[in-house]
Design a protein around this nucleic acid. Structure first.
Ligand SMILES: [Mn+2]
Ligand SMILES: [Mn+2]
Ligand SMILES: [Mn+2]
Ligand SMILES: [Mn+2]
Lengths: 218, 218
DNA sequence: AATTAAATTTAGACAAAACTAAAAATTTGT
DNA sequence: ACAAATTTTTAGTTTTGTCTAAATTTAATT
């Protein structure tokens, strides 16, 4: 598989998941910052190789082999992200770019050894699940902080927006995965939240709350 | 720089070193398992970019920038090889192939952190020197075991042939870098050597001796 | 010095992956 | 149901890196 093919497969997976819901040509093009005509070309090639289902004008969906392939690339991406953070002291806003390159390194042994070195992590630095060698991964029941009722406790377990700007903003405000959050109050006017996190009180906008995942304490 | 450009630069360096000795088109082609006409095309492109000196029919040599570039790629290659051996338990015959991929990862921070994680190693698993960030590297005075006079002591510090077959052969015979070697006798007939290594006596062919580097004890 | 051999370059072609512009199919709105 | 808008595909180019075959230059031999 070429690097380009792998990037298409990964994008199709991210847009549609393992379901066989067909993804629109335009959606793929937009996500990959390329042109729809290029997507059509690649759709044909990937269909030829048995990685996607493709019917003219009907969109693209992954075959079983396509899903397996996607999960293997995502596994590599997320394991490398963990490696960079845990072993090389990268911050979580720096890892994605490098992982985009590292995910294409072809060596089964390499990624399995990295997995072992990291003690088989189940989630990446952004809280996203890491598929195992055989393609299984945990689905954690999490919800957006903005959807959580008032006066509830939870643990911060993930981010929806993974852009460096957002991540650096969270760093600046000492919001990190693993932190315990209690919602104290919600302003009806702008949906902003008063929360308590690790002792201190914070006031965060709806923007922020709608990009933070929490797991409610059971 | 593209991956292909980087591979040409590296090959030119390996064939000619940092001297401005021009390397023949055919030599590059053979080393890279490509065709001379492809080399000519690339020579023009690299000259255009200021990485090599190139005059028609006169061969190719690296410019100062070309040498710096080559050293930076070799640095990455060898640091990754050390990483694979020291941190992921790869054997020295497995690392080259993977390092050929990893050397092209673009991230200054990544390779510097790997360097730090490994505690700034000076030599790779095959005994080859690792250039520092600013392109300097140690040149160890070593000689081929086959060139060493009889009854001398030395330490095994490198291999000339780095092919997996040779390296695995050395493993099988418990010959490893760092071992102390004493030459007991040489058979005039076939130039084979009787040596003592870590207590045990061994009989090795000229083939082997002429691919093993030793540093004489001073 | 002329001829032959070897090395190198040119010219033209190809595959991969992208693009633009135009054509065709599908969806939407009235 | 039909025209308009949108989406998608086709056709034809471009760039990068490679190739083959032919032409040219340099090196080696007689
Ligand atoms: Mn990422
Ligand atoms: Mn991630
Ligand atoms: Mn190597
Ligand atoms: Mn090496």
């Amino acid at each position: 598989m070429t690097r380009s093919e792998e990037n298409y497969i990964k994008t199709i997976f991210h847009l549609g998941g393992s379901d066989s819901v067909p993804i629109a040509t335009n959606a793929i093009a937009e996500q990959m910052e390329t042109k729809p005509s290029s997507v059509t070309d690649m759709a044909k090639k990937l269909a030829e190789k048995g990685l996607v289902h493709y019917k003219k004008y009907q969109g693209v969906s992954l075959t079983d082999i396509g899903v397996k392939t996607a999960l293997s690339i995502i596994r590599k991406h997320r394991l490398w992200e963990v490696f960079l953070v845990k072993k090389l002291d990268f911050s979580w806003d720096e890892v994605h770019e490098v992982a985009e390159q590292l995910e294409h390194i072809k060596s089964e042994k390499l990624i399995d050894k990295i997995d072992e070195l990291l003690d088989f992590p189940k989630f990446d630095p952004h809280g996203d699940p890491i598929p195992s060698k055989d393609g299984k991964f945990m689905i954690r029941d999490k919800q957006l902080l903005s959807d959580v009722p008032i006066h509830t406790d939870g643990v911060c377990v993930g981010v929806k927006d993974t852009s460096p700007t957002f991540l650096k903003f969270l760093d600046k405000n000492n919001i990190a995965l693993g932190n315990t959050i209690r919602i104290l109050d919600k302003e009806e006017f702008d949906q902003s939240l008063h929360i308590q996190m690790d002792g201190k009180e914070l006031h965060i906008s709806h923007q922020i709350a709608s990009n933070l995942y929490v797991k409610l304490n059971d």
